[in-house]
């Protein structure tokens, strides 16, 4: 399994970490209880697992992320592209844009991105 592949529950925890880091682990369990309905032990188990995979670190009861949200998102979208669209970006975009209207602002943003990427 790739280091960057996060399960739903792991991603949700990381979401909280990214938002609040650096965060006290006790504090984190409280947020997880409230937002995810997790028991304290569940949160700690999850922290330990992710720490083992170097996705976050837990030092002196302070949790910080070792991965950026952007990295994970990049990995996820690449995996999706590879999995479902044989790595073809146009095929992905075609599927994505089907039955969808882009606003002018969104279209401009995308255009800008494409220009930057092809430079």
């Amino acid at each position: 399994m790739s280091k960057l592949k996060l399960f739903d529950a792991e991603y949700k925890l990381m979401d909280i970490v990214w938002e609040h880091e650096p965060i006290n682990s006790t504090e984190l369990t409280k947020i997880c209880r409230q937002k995810l309905g997790w028991k304290k032990s569940t949160t700690y188990t999850m922290i330990r697992k992710l720490a083992q995979r170097d996705i976050l670190k837990n030092e002196n009861a302070t949790v910080t992320a070792l991965l950026k949200r952007k990295d994970v998102q990049k990995y996820e979208s690449e995996a999706l592209l590879e999995d479902k669209f044989n790595g073809s970006l146009p095929a992905f975009l075609a599927a994505f844009l089907q039955d969808k209207k882009l606003s002018e602002k969104e279209a401009k943003e995308i255009q800008k991105m494409i220009e930057e990427a092809t430079k």
Binding site: D8, A9, E10, K35, G37, W38, T42, T45, M46
Partner: peptide, 16 residues
């Protein structure tokens, strides 16, 4: 389902 996350009421979701 140990890491299933709270959805609403008594409903929990997980990708497992």
């Amino acid at each position: 389902i140990s890491a299933a996350t709270f959805y609403k009421d008594n409903i929990f979701e997980t990708d497992q």
